[in-house]
Amino acid sequence: MVGIRARGDLIATRLHEAIRRNENVDVPLGSLDITLYRDDLTRIGHAPVVRESVIPFSIDDRIVVLIDDVLFTGRTIRAAMDALVDYGRPRAIRLAVLVDRGHRELPIKADFVGKNVPTNLADDVRVQLIETGGADTVELVQAAAA
């Protein structure tokens, strides 16, 4: 299991803990920072902070589940797959997300989805987690109201 920073890794940690508790299986867990793989680096005007990726196991010939909070355009997942293959050659990559809000710009599809939420393109989906100092909430902020 590899969570994508900066919220997917927190969700991955929770899933990892749930699997360990319920199934008594300790799935190897890592986190991935995809900043250096973003395709909009030259367009955002400033350099976003690069955080360390931690993948303390070989991914060669294993099934890796990428975990993120919201699946939207698919560009983050594209960057994450590019980053992941720099660590080795997994047998397969699967994708698990908390929310799929649609509006894909790349041919990417999640294998495991917490909830599909239909949205307008300009809407904002805000995920808060206890770990980041809020309550566990997912808010859909509609464009007109935002």
Binding site: T35, L36, Y37, R38, L41, E52, S53, V54, D82, A83, V85, D86, Y87, G88
Partner: peptide
């Protein structure tokens, strides 16, 4: 950390 990876190259620049 990037330099410790099997492939020490990222597409950032």
């Amino acid at each position: 950390e990037v330099l410790g990876r099997p492939i020490r190259r990222t597409p950032a620049l």
